[in-house]
Simulated assay, not measured.
Amino acid sequence: MDEKTNELAFQIILYAGNGKSSMMEAIQEAKENNFEIADNKLKEAKEELNKAHEFQTELLQKEAQGKGYNINIILIHAQDHLMNAITTQDLATEIIDLYKRNK
């Protein structure tokens, strides 16, 4: 297996997972009307997803240069994690907005 591919994939998994966890915490805080904490958790989540995206961008740039990495199940899993985290971010933002409106 390509060590560099796995290293990048695990970084994506790590930061996407951190971001998703922060988003779920943000929803729970909004549920308790702790909107300032919820907003901070969303900001934290965005920072984590940005880190994950930086690693994904490295993969994409290498691929565009014809120097792509070997695709393996760990990399596929990492991409899946990132896509789910991004979807969760969109939904968390909407859910928190609904909690704010219904306060």
Score class of each variant (00 low, 15 high):
residue 97 D to I: 00
residue 80 D to S: 11
residue 95 I to Y: 00
residue 101 R to W: 01
residue 17 G to C: 05
residue 62 K to Y: 09
residue 2 D to W: 03
residue 70 N to T: 15
residue 25 E to H: 11
residue 41 K to T: 04
residue 38 A to L: 01
residue 7 E to D: 12
residue 77 H to F: 07
residue 92 A to V: 04
residue 65 Q to F: 12
residue 90 D to W: 11
residue 52 A to Y: 00
residue 60 L to G: 06
residue 67 K to A: 13
residue 26 A to D: 02
residue 76 I to A: 14
residue 21 S to W: 05
residue 17 G to A: 04
residue 21 S to M: 08
residue 4 K to A: 14
residue 39 D to R: 04
residue 75 L to A: 12
residue 14 L to D: 05
residue 73 I to F: 15
residue 1 M to F: 14
residue 9 A to I: 04
residue 11 Q to W: 03
residue 13 I to T: 03
residue 11 Q to R: 06
residue 100 K to C: 00
residue 6 N to A: 07
residue 72 N to T: 09
residue 57 T to A: 03
residue 6 N to R: 08
residue 89 Q to D: 10
residue 2 D to A: 09
residue 12 I to W: 02
residue 68 G to T: 10
residue 69 Y to E: 11
residue 76 I to G: 10
residue 46 K to G: 04
residue 2 D to T: 06
residue 10 F to E: 02
residue 42 L to Y: 02
residue 90 D to E: 14
residue 21 S to A: 09
residue 54 E to W: 01
residue 8 L to Q: 06
residue 57 T to W: 01
residue 29 E to I: 08
residue 75 L to Q: 12
residue 5 T to Q: 09
residue 88 T to D: 05
residue 34 N to Q: 15
residue 15 Y to A: 00
residue 57 T to V: 04
residue 12 I to Y: 02
residue 25 E to L: 14
residue 79 Q to D: 11
residue 100 K to T: 00
residue 3 E to V: 14
residue 4 K to P: 10
residue 74 I to N: 08
residue 52 A to W: 00
residue 24 M to Q: 14
residue 97 D to V: 00
residue 17 G to H: 02
residue 90 D to N: 15
residue 54 E to F: 04
residue 91 L to T: 13
residue 43 K to A: 14
residue 33 N to C: 14
residue 46 K to Y: 07
residue 1 M to K: 13
residue 64 A to G: 08
residue 6 N to I: 12
residue 2 D to R: 06
residue 10 F to A: 05
residue 62 K to L: 14
residue 13 I to W: 04
residue 55 F to E: 00
residue 58 E to K: 06
residue 89 Q to H: 10
residue 84 N to R: 08
residue 86 I to Y: 05
residue 22 S to D: 13
residue 73 I to M: 15
residue 57 T to S: 04
residue 69 Y to A: 12
residue 5 T to S: 09
residue 64 A to N: 10
residue 66 G to V: 10
residue 2 D to L: 06
residue 51 K to L: 01
residue 52 A to F: 00
residue 10 F to D: 02
residue 97 D to Q: 01
residue 82 L to I: 11
residue 77 H to W: 08
residue 3 E to R: 14
residue 2 D to V: 03
residue 99 Y to W: 07
residue 39 D to P: 09
residue 45 A to V: 06
residue 83 M to Y: 07
residue 53 H to I: 01
residue 28 Q to L: 15
residue 49 L to W: 00
residue 46 K to T: 09
residue 55 F to V: 00
residue 41 K to R: 12
residue 41 K to I: 06
residue 12 I to Q: 02
residue 25 E to C: 10
residue 88 T to W: 10
residue 31 K to N: 14
residue 7 E to V: 09
residue 15 Y to M: 02
residue 74 I to L: 15
residue 73 I to S: 15
residue 59 L to F: 06
residue 20 K to V: 07
residue 7 E to Q: 13
residue 85 A to H: 02
residue 79 Q to T: 08
residue 83 M to A: 10
residue 37 I to Q: 12
residue 40 N to D: 10
residue 72 N to M: 09
residue 63 E to Q: 13
residue 58 E to P: 03
